[in-house]
C-alpha cells in the first residue's frame, strides 16, 4: 500500500495538485489529512455513481468520492495506482479518488485567476479558481463544499 503522510505546514497558500484524466486539479493543503493508495471499497446501495463506496480509515467509515465521476467525466476504474486523498472539511471526513498526486505547490497570489465564462459545463460548478503554474500547467482549484456529499443524517448528494 502506497501511503504518504503530509506534514502540516503553516503556509496557507500551499496546494496539493493531482491529475484526473489529463487535467490538473488542486485543493488547499489545509483540508488534506493524508494520501493513501487505493484499496477496495464496500459498495453503498442506492448511492450516486460518483460514490465509489466506503473504506475503513483506522476505525472510521469514510466514503470515497470518484472525482472524475463527480466532475462529470467518465467514471474511474480504480487500480492500485490510483490514490485516495483523505480530506476533512467541517468535521466530515471523505476520501477523494484521483489518478495520481503530482505535487505540493506553493502559490503566489498573482497566479490565481477567476474562471472564465466557458459556457455550461458540469465541471465548471466545482471549480473556484484557476491557477497558472510556472511550468505552464493550469491547476483547477476544487470547491470542497460542492464536492463533498452532505452528511449528518441527510441524504447524501
Amino acid at each position: 500500500m502506497r501511503q504518504m503522510l503530509i506534514e502540516h505546514t503553516p503556509d496557507q497558500s500551499d496546494v496539493v495538485s493531482f491529475r484526473i484524466g489529463d487535467q490538473d486539479y488542486c485543493i488547499d493543503i489545509d483540508v488534506v489529512r493524508e494520501i493513501r493508495g487505493w484499496s477496495p471499497t464496500t459498495v453503498l446501495p442506492h448511492s450516486p455513481p460518483h460514490i465509489t463506496g466506503v473504506i475503513n480509515l483506522r476505525g472510521t467509515v469514510v466514503a470515497v468520492v470518484d472525482l472524475a465521476a463527480r466532475l462529470g467525466l467518465p467514471q474511474t476504474v480504480p487500480t492500485p495506482r490510483h490514490v485516495v486523498i483523505i480530506v476533512s472539511v467541517n468535521s466530515q471526513t471523505v476520501g477523494l479518488l484521483a489518478d495520481v498526486v503530482s505535487d505540493i505547490l506553493g502559490i503566489d497570489e498573482g497566479s490565481v485567476k477567476p474562471v472564465p465564462d466557458v459556457g455550461p459545463d458540469p465541471t465548471r460548478a466545482f471549480i473556484t479558481n484557476l491557477i497558472t503554474h510556472d511550468d505552464g500547467r493550469i491547476l483547477r482549484k476544487l470547491d470542497m463544499d460542492k464536492i463533498l456529499p452532505r452528511s449528518a443524517g441527510g441524504q447524501p448528494s
Partner: peptide, 16 residues
C-alpha cells in the same frame, strides 16, 4: 460504526 457521520443515510442500511 456510524455511516451518518461522514456520509449520510443509506436506505435499507442502519450502520456499518
Amino acid at each position: 460504526k456510524s455511516l451518518e457521520d461522514n456520509y449520510g443515510d443509506v436506505p435499507g442500511i442502519s450502520a456499518a
